[in-house]
């Protein structure tokens, strides 16, 4: 069986969870195995998981899962995988998923590969593909252990409704006690997707000349329902908060649309964004290296070009 651990938040399945389920489903189809999902905690609506291919969802209700403690979660996931004799365990490559994969794999005596971007090749061994060297290359890796643990890179696969009936099965297993005491979780109040999950990102660099000029970028982001980001020098100068920094040492992203405004495109920045499906570069310097990585380039004064683009998108939306 392929077992997918599904991340939930405030009683809702996260997008990363849906992607993991669909990834698990496509893998299970290839291997001729059933695809089951696992939800840890109460209240989450599991019906959407059937749409993307899971036939059964196992649910453990316990207040141990009210706060995220990766030791408690990874222990439970491994025990369920053992209980169900799963041969493939699929996680999301999210902040929480990254802290789970090594532990789940160790408990299962399994080999693991994180941030997988394509459905595994299963004809001759179990071979997965992922980005390496901060997206400057790709690698195919074979997991040689009997059980395989993988995590799925966000925005790597297309979600398609396959519409399976889903059965919810409550499950009870012994749990370990949390050793971490979560004091608070502070989420930015935002109507748009957080950067790692965002489908559209508008990003600014030093070309904007100062934090007071971010209004034009935010207007464009709003028109596109996009998340805002920035280059490293901008975050280092405290023009923008650090969590907006995308690039090799910041967050690596792969949205459908990345609009780079006033960013020259240093190799470290490109490493974090060059997996974006479509890249638009707006820069007054025609020699900016970023143009080489762009699908669409606009050589011009961003202070004129960006409001013009915002207006064009608004009229397209009307």
């Amino acid at each position: 069986m392929v077992l997918v651990f599904v991340e939930t938040e405030n009683g809702k399945v996260r997008k990363a969870g849906l992607e993991a389920v669909h990834f698990g489903y496509l893998t299970s189809q290839k291997m001729g195995l059933p695809c089951h999902a696992l939800i840890l905690g109460e209240g989450a609506d599991a019906s959407s998981l059937g749409l993307y291919g899971a036939t059964t969802v196992h649910q453990i209700s316990s207040n141990h899962f009210n706060r995220f403690d990766n030791q408690v979660f990874s222990d439970a996931i491994a025990k369920v995988a053992q209980h169900l004799a799963a041969s493939v365990v699929v996680l999301s490559h999210s902040a929480n998923g990254k802290s789970l994969i090594g532990q789940v794999a160790y408990h299962l005596g399994a080999g693991s590969v994180s941030a997988v971007i394509e459905i595994p090749e299963t004809e001759n061994g179990f071979i997965v593909k992922k980005g390496v060297f901060s997206s400057k290359a790709l690698v195919k890796m074979e997991i040689t252990s009997p059980i395989k643990v993988i995590s799925v890179q966000g925005n790597a696969i297309q979600l398609n409704v396959v519409g399976t009936e889903i059965t919810v099965k409550p499950l009870e297993i012994p749990l370990v006690d949390p050793k971490i005491d979560v004091i608070s979780v502070d989420k930015l109040q935002s109507n748009v997707a957080p950067l790692p999950e965002a489908e559209r990102v508008v990003s600014g660099g030093r070309g904007l000349k100062g934090p007071e000029n971010w209004g034009i970028l935010e207007d464009l982001a709003q028109a596109l329902n996009a998340t805002t980001a920035c280059s490293r020098p901008v975050a280092d100068s405290d023009w923008r908060p650090h969590h907006e920094h995308v690039g090799q040492t910041g967050i690596a992203i792969r949205p459908n649309l990345y609009i780079a405004i006033g960013i020259s495109g240093a190799i470290q920045h490109l490493a974090g964004v060059n997996n974006s499906k479509t890249i638009v570069v707006i820069n007054k310097d025609p020699e900016a290296p970023f143009f080489k990585a762009a699908n669409y380039g606009v050589v011009g004064d961003l202070f004129e070009v960006v409001p013009r683009l915002t207006a064009a998108i608004k009229s397209l939306n009307e």
Binding site: I180, D181, V182, I183, D186, K187, L188, P194, P196, H243
Partner: peptide, 9 residues
């Protein structure tokens, strides 16, 4: 964490 921070002891 995605879109924020968690504080723990």
């Amino acid at each position: 964490i995605e879109g924020g921070t968690e504080t723990l002891k």
